[in-house]
Design a binder for these strands. Structure first.
Lengths: 292, 292
DNA sequence: GTTCCGCATGAATCGATAG
DNA sequence: ACTATCGATTCATGCGGAA
C-alpha cells in the first residue's frame, strides 16, 4: 500500500471544503491562541475567537468520520489579570454545532516558560480537548500502554516492613515469583494527564508541541493507513509523525513559508516510498532519517 | 493571641448570612460534585448545579475580604459519554456576579483510582479554580517554594569550584551576600500544577482531598491568625490544617454527623489553647498531636 | 568515547515607559 | 486617558564543544 500526504496552502476554513465528508480518522491540531494585541500578524482577539473558529469546527465536523476523533490543543491566556473565557465559550459553541465533548486531557509541561509575577505562578499545563461525532468512537487503548516503572516502584516502597521481611525469608522461591509477577505486568494503561516536555531547543522549527504528543494520539485513535488531518500544520510536527507511523496525512496552512517547509521535508520520504523496498528493517531505519 | 474555630450546622447558603462582610482571608472548599443520580443523598443534578451554587457563591463574595482568595476544587463528571459543562457555566455565572477568575490550578493526582473503560482512561486530575474580588489580592509566594531540579544541583556544583573561591576572597567586603543569594537558589517557585497523591490511608473519613492541598493554599494566601473558611467542611480536613497552621477557621456543614465529628476533633485543641502556655515548643508539639 | 559544562531558548506575564 | 512596546523575571531541556 502507498502512503498519501496532501498539503493545502490557504485558509483552512476554505480549504477544508475541498475534502470529502466522513473521510478523516483523526484531527490533531493546535490553532493559534487568542492574542489581545490586534496588530500581531494572525492574532485573533479573545472576544472574536469563537466567531472565528466556528466555521472551521463546522467543516471539521463534516470531514471527520463518525468513528473519528478531534483533539484540540489550546490554552487561554491572561488578560488584565484574569484568565480569558474563550476556550469555555468555544466548547459550549461546538456542542451546539453537534460535537460531543468527550474528554479533556491535560498536557502537564515538564519545562514551562520561566517568569515571576507578584500574583501568579508559571503556567505549566495546556488543554487537550477531545471531541467526537458519536459516542461510539474508535480507540486502541492497548497501543499507548506505559511501562509500570514508577507505579511499581512506589508500590514496592509502600510495602510494609513485615511484608518485606516475609519476602526476604522466601529468597529463591516466593520472592522470586513475586518479582516475576511484577515483571510480567510491566505495562499499565495511562491516565488522562500527559507529562511531557516542550521542544524548545531546535533552531529553525520551534514546534508548537513535542512529537510525543501527536504520536500518542495517533497511536491511540488510528491504525496504519488511516488518515490524520492537521488544519493548522505549522512546521508540520503532526504530519511528520503521521508519516513516520505510516498514516495518511492532510495538512493545511495559510503561511506559504510553512507550506514550503513541510513540502520539502516530506518529499524525500514520498520518493523513497515509491521505490522498491529491499527489506523491512532497512526501510524503517532509513525512513526515520529521511524525515528528521 | 487566641485561635478561633467557629462551626455552623446547616445549609451554608443560610449560615453564611451570619458572617460579617469582608471578614475572610481565604475560602478553600470542595463542594459536592454534580451527580446525575437524583436518588443520591445530597446529589445535585448537573442541569441544576449552577442555579444551586449561585446563591452560595454570592454569599462567599460578600464575606471574603477584597484582598482574599477563593479556591474551588471541582471536576465535571461524565454523563452519557460526555463531560458535563456545568463547571464552565459556573465560571461564567460567577464572573457575572463580580468574581474574577484569576487562575486555574491543576491537581495532578499521583495515584488515581484504578479502572478501565472501553473509550476512556482513568481521570487523574481535578480543577482548583482561583477566584478573587480584586486584581490586587495577597499572595505569599515565598512560602510555597519547592526544591530546584537537577539543573540547579549541577549549577551549584559548578559554583563550588570557582565562584566559591572568589566569594571567599571577598570576605568582609560585603560581597558575602553573593553566597547567600546562591544558597536561596536552592528553591524555585512552583507552577500552577500541584502533583500530589490522594490520601488512601485514612481509616474512617475518606477526605475529599489530601491535607497537602489546603495546606499549600493556606501557606500561599494567608498568614498566622488570618481566617480560613470552608463552607462544605465535610470531615474537616481544611479546618484541621488551618488549626495546625495557627489560622482562625470557620466551618459549615449540613450533615450533623460531620458537624459532630469535627467538633470532637477540634475540642481538645481549643481547650488546650485556653490554658496557660508553659513554653512555645511544647505548645507547638502538643497541638499537632491533639488534632490528629 | 564518555562525561561534563555552557548556552540559547521557549504559546508567558507584569509594570514601567513612551507615543 | 488610553494603547503599544520593552525590559526583567526565571527554569527545564538538549545541543555542541571541551576536558
Amino acid at each position: 500500500m502507498e502512503l498519501h500526504t496532501d498539503l493545502y496552502l490557504g485558509d483552512c476554513k476554505e480549504e477544508l471544503k475541498k475534502l470529502p465528508a466522513n473521510s478523516v480518522d483523526l484531527i490533531v491540531t493546535s490553532p493559534p491562541y487568542a492574542d489581545q494585541r490586534k496588530s500581531t500578524y494572525g492574532g485573533i482577539h479573545p472576544d472574536e475567537y469563537v466567531k472565528w473558529f466556528q466555521p472551521i469546527s463546522k467543516q471539521l465536523l463534516r470531514v471527520l468520520k463518525p468513528t473519528g476523533t478531534f483533539i484540540l490543543n489550546i490554552k487561554e491566556k491572561v488578560v488584565e489579570g484574569e484568565r480569558s473565557t474563550y476556550v469555555m465559550e468555544l466548547i459550549l459553541e461546538m456542542r451546539k454545532q453537534g460535537w460531543l465533548w468527550t474528554e479533556e486531557f491535560i498536557w502537564h509541561k515538564k519545562n514551562s516558560y520561566p517568569g515571576k509575577w507578584p500574583n501568579r505562578f508559571r503556567d505549566s499545563w495546556e488543554r487537550l480537548l477531545q471531541f467526537n461525532k458519536d459516542k461510539k468512537f474508535i480507540m486502541y487503548q492497548e497501543n499507548v500502554m506505559v511501562p509500570m516503572g514508577d507505579w511499581a516502584k512506589s508500590r514496592l516502597k509502600n510495602l510494609s516492613d513485615t511484608d518485606k521481611i516475609r519476602d526476604n525469608s522466601k529468597v529463591g522461591s516466593g520472592f522470586g515469583k513475586n518479582i516475576s509477577n511484577w515483571l510480567t505486568r510491566d505495562m499499565a494503561y495511562p491516565t488522562n494527564v500527559l507529562h511531557l516536555a516542550t521542544e524548545c531547543n531546535n533552531k529553525k522549527h520551534s514546534a508548537a508541541f513535542p512529537e510525543e504528543l501527536p504520536e500518542w494520539f495517533i497511536k491511540l485513535f488510528t491504525k496504519e493507513y488511516d488518515t490524520v488531518l492537521d488544519p493548522f500544520m505549522g512546521s508540520g510536527t503532526t504530519l511528520n509523525v503521521a508519516n513516520r507511523m505510516k498514516r495518511n496525512s492532510i495538512g493545511i496552512d495559510i503561511v506559504p513559508e510553512y507550506y514550503d517547509m513541510v513540502s520539502k521535508q516530506l518529499k524525500p520520504v514520498e520518493l523513497y516510498l515509491l521505490e522498491p523496498k529491499p527489506n523491512y528493517e532497512k526501510v524503517e531505519h532509513q525512513r526515520r532519517y529521511a524525515i528528521r
